[in-house]
Design a binder for these strands. Structure first.
Length: 350
DNA sequence: CAGCAAATAT
DNA sequence: AATATTTGCT
């Protein structure tokens, strides 16, 4: 742990020749980006870290008019389709009044002196490095433009692995539930979720798994969200169930016939944070609260930190550093690979 | 394009 | 090992 970030190596080819699965350090993210010092001040100068964390306020990502415009277009396109009854007015939800933010989120922008607590001591060290979310799905990876200046690279580049965070999944489920089985098709879901960076493939794949999960559930028992599917386990079932959790036993999923409020974040809905798709290799797994839906806001068994305290932003783009032991909502810890996960914010902010 | 199952990648 | 993504097919 004496070593800091020493990323400098990048493989330009995604050839995936690292079959060893050892540790490929893809530092491409960093390359071409302004130095931390150039960036941090921006988000830092506005509000002192302490204050920020205390109030759960986060610096807004700076978006160039262009970015915003682009995002807006996309959003509009999506909304225009069928988003009529949905109220998608979003302010920055900097309010997590639920008070569930028991976590002393410390915004160490540069202090990562190995203060990585693993037992919930309470302090997360991290380095903040903000990147433009909108960019990242296209321009960012194009740093290899050196050899492929073609525009094709912009969208053809493979995206980082998407991590379905509980929040993201929650939203997914909400949307699916809202649409009903009939309309719950990848495309529609994707649109309604209105999460930037989400592809149809992402949703389709997830939906597929989700369905399987639901199926299993039905077949087995009225309830009993086993820890089998960690991801789906804790999600409130859509009302489209014959019986789902009758309320017997296990803990009940407590599926109130949630009409699904709708798209995008509910500060108080999912534990106090909005769905932020996480790209990277270090996602936290879903909470298998097993009988407890994190729907409310009490999924803090241990000391759940927002996004590992990395959620310094609502800016949506946070890059985890190298190895960070993180805990999820269940206490599972991960942290082996050293990669540079990306988080993308939902476009609920404009 | 949606849905699946299987393979593959991380 | 668990997940997410990709692929091939319908």
């Amino acid at each position: 742990m004496g070593e800091e970030v020493k990323m400098s190596e990048y493989e330009i080819n995604d050839g995936e020749d690292n079959i060893n699965g050892d540790d490929e350090r893809v530092a491409v993210w960093e390359i071409g980006l302004p130095t931390p010092d150039d960036l941090t001040p921006l988000s830092q100068a506005l509000i002192p870290p302490e204050l920020a964390s205390a109030f759960s306020i986060f610096p807004e990502p700076h978006r160039t008019p262009l970015d915003v415009n682009r995002a807006s277009q996309t959003t509009l396109s999506n909304l225009r389709g069928q988003l009529n009854a949905l109220s998608s007015i979003n302010f920055k939800s900097f309010n997590e009044t639920t008070g569930q933010t028991h976590d002393p989120i410390e915004v160490d922008l540069d202090n990562k002196t190995g203060a990585v607590d693993r037992d919930g001591s309470g302090s997360e060290a991290r380095k903040l490095r903000r990147i433009d979310s909108e960019e990242e799905d296209s321009a960012l990876r194009t740093e290899n433009s050196a050899e492929d200046p073609s525009s094709a690279a912009a969208r053809s580049l493979k995206r980082p692995r998407l991590v379905w965070t509980p929040q993201l999944h929650k939203r997914f489920v909400d949307v699916v539930g809202h649409l009903g089985i009939k309309n719950a098709v990848p495309k529609t879901i994707m649109q309604l979720m209105n999460v930037e960076g989400l592809t149809r493939e992402n949703v389709a794949s997830h939906l597929q798994k989700y369905r399987l999960y639901l199926k299993r559930m039905q077949g087995l028992s009225s309830e009993g969200p086993s820890a089998s599917d960690q991801l789906f386990a804790s999600t409130p079932l859509p009302q489209s169930f014959p019986e789902s959790s009758g309320g017997g036993g296990g803990g009940g999923n407590g599926n109130f016939g949630i009409p699904i409020p709708m798209p995008y974040h509910h500060p108080a809905t999912a534990g106090g944070m909005m769905p932020m798709p996480v790209y990277g290799h270090m996602g936290m797994q879903m909470g298998n609260n097993n009988g407890h839906n994190n729907n409310s806001s009490d999924n803090h068994q241990h000391h759940q930190v927002s996004i590992n305290g990395h959620q310094n932003g609502y800016n949506g783009n946070v890059v985890h550093d190298h190895m960070f032991q993180q805990r999820d909502w269940n206490g599972n810890h991960y942290g082996s690979y050293t990669h540079h996960p990306h988080q993308v914010a939902p476009n609920d902010n404009m």
